[in-house]
Amino acid sequence: MTTYTLQSDLQLARQLADMADVISMDRFRAADLDVSMKPDMTHVTDADKAVEAAIRGALHDSRPDDSVLGEEAGEEAGSDGSHRQWIVDPIDGTANYVRGVPVWASLISLAIDGVPAVGVVSAPALGKRWWGATGLGAFVDESLGSPTTTSERRIHVSRVADIADASMSCSGLIRWEQAGKLKEFLSLARRVWRTRDYGDMWPYMMVAEGLVDIAGEFDLKPWDMAALVPIVQEAGGRFSSVAGEPGPWHGSAIATNGLLHDAVLDAVR
């Protein structure tokens, strides 16, 4: 089995994001966009399917031993004993994509032994891309799609240490209610300085950039979270489930600047 460096895996993930952006932007706001509903009553478009198929094809050629887990086509096993899994959400925020709202992204991650080690979040309609890998830092490019300029920079979470001074973006009020946590959510919301729901992947990337201090939600799948984890953590933050469990495997997420994490978990538990 071939051994790869995280640097080469990150480079590949960014190349996959380049490919995804071309496909997704070509279909964004297209008059003939094909939209249907999945059994879980979420949208899927021809763009979702095309992006994931293209990424899977590229991974089959470049990382044939690795397994792949994607939102649209499920899990594809790699070679026996492979401890590397690519986790793909071809378009996170498909409901926004369908309505023409530019807050959506392709999420690409590599988990090693179940721990996300590489993450790329590419939001071409916003002109932004974030990425990170264990030990390699977290970065943003705010000139995505520009042929003449680049604005890559390293990012870091905020230093806000008091919940009363915190900006919070916890999405899906109904999901907090369905999880039996509405009382806790509202109590926390009353304690922070500011609450806004920016939606989908964006609040977590704002945490990584130091623009928001707390983000979280329920009813998530691994492909919704895996790419976010290394970016938030490499920016100096923390990422867990609402119960404090590490990783993207537990159906919920809390991301903070780290300084606030224990206090937030205590509040929502």
Rank of each mutant, 00 (worst) to 15 (best):
D46T: 15
A53W: 10
R191T: 02
S240V: 09
F185W: 09
G132W: 14
A215P: 06
D219G: 02
H43F: 12
V120M: 02
L259A: 13
S146R: 10
R175F: 04
L260N: 07
G132Q: 10
L211W: 10
S241A: 09
M168F: 05
D197H: 15
V51W: 11
K181W: 00
Y204C: 02
D61P: 12
A31D: 15
R175I: 11
E209P: 05
L220T: 13
P39K: 15
D46N: 08
S146M: 00
S106H: 11
P203M: 10
E75F: 10
A17K: 15
S169H: 04
T256R: 00
M37R: 06
E52K: 10
L144R: 08
D165T: 00
G127V: 07
I55E: 01
S62P: 12
L220K: 06
N257D: 03
S241F: 06
V44Y: 07
W176Q: 03
H60V: 11
V242L: 08
V51P: 09
M19G: 12
W202D: 14
W104P: 00
D89P: 06
S67E: 10
G127F: 04
W193C: 12
S79N: 13
V98C: 02
V264K: 01
D89H: 11
E177M: 15
K181Y: 05
W193G: 03
Y204V: 13
L144M: 13
V140Y: 01
A105W: 04
